[in-house]
Amino acid sequence: MLLAQTKAESLRIIRSPFFMLFSILMPLAFYFLFASLNGADKSIASTTYGSYSLMSMTAFSLIGTAVSQFGIRLAYERRDGWVRLLRLTPLTPAVWIGSKLIAHMGIHLLTIIVIFSAAQLTYSFDLTLAQWVSCGLWLWLGSLPFLALGSILGTMKNADAAIAIGNMLHMGLAILGGLWMPLRTLPHWMQSIGEWLPSYRFAHGAWNMLAGSAPVLLDWLILVVSGILFMVLSGYILNRREAM
């Protein structure tokens, strides 16, 4: 049951034209655009711009998949009666949500591999295998809090509003988190907000590893705490609705 459901959920994500466009093509296009405008070899934060921006754009892609494909899809499935239909079958909510999470994590891993490979084939970075693997793993696991954020969107009754809010969250988190332009090039007030956002911390951990250090305690802390907060919040909304 779990296997079949995971397979079905994975197929649905991969076949979505929005996934192809917003999670693969757009991040890659912007990555190559920024890298060629700034020069992939330009030095930034003790590493090269090419690899720095690669982490930003991979983070941007993963946040988009987690928020849109997971969150917005949940909102639509609720609106279209799909959730109610599944409640009539022996499929349990745990297996249903579990399969979605497994499918997402599989696809997030695949996304990281595809984007990393495309960049490496183009620019042949001077990174060790350990750096590739640790950056990839960090981004992979770091995408979990954003799935939790998506689950809040998924509780929304107005699915069309969920799209609007989802896109705003995606873009807002990306810009304020320094994924489009490095945070220190932004106005001071935006920097002081950005530093506390999970999106900045998400990419920051990977940037540190490129520079040969490790994610700092605050990176871990903000990602873990925001993930738990998002989960508790969506759980609370769902429970309150059930009770009515």
Partner: peptide
């Protein structure tokens, strides 16, 4: 739920799956 089948009003089909895939999915339940 193992023993009941229900057809409700106003349910949209899952996007991204073929007829065969949808039915195989439901069979797996």
């Amino acid at each position: 739920r193992q023993r009941i089948g229900a057809l409700m009003q106003d349910v949209k089909a899952a996007d991204g799956l073929t007829v065969k895939e949808v039915l195989e999915l439901f069979r797996s339940y």
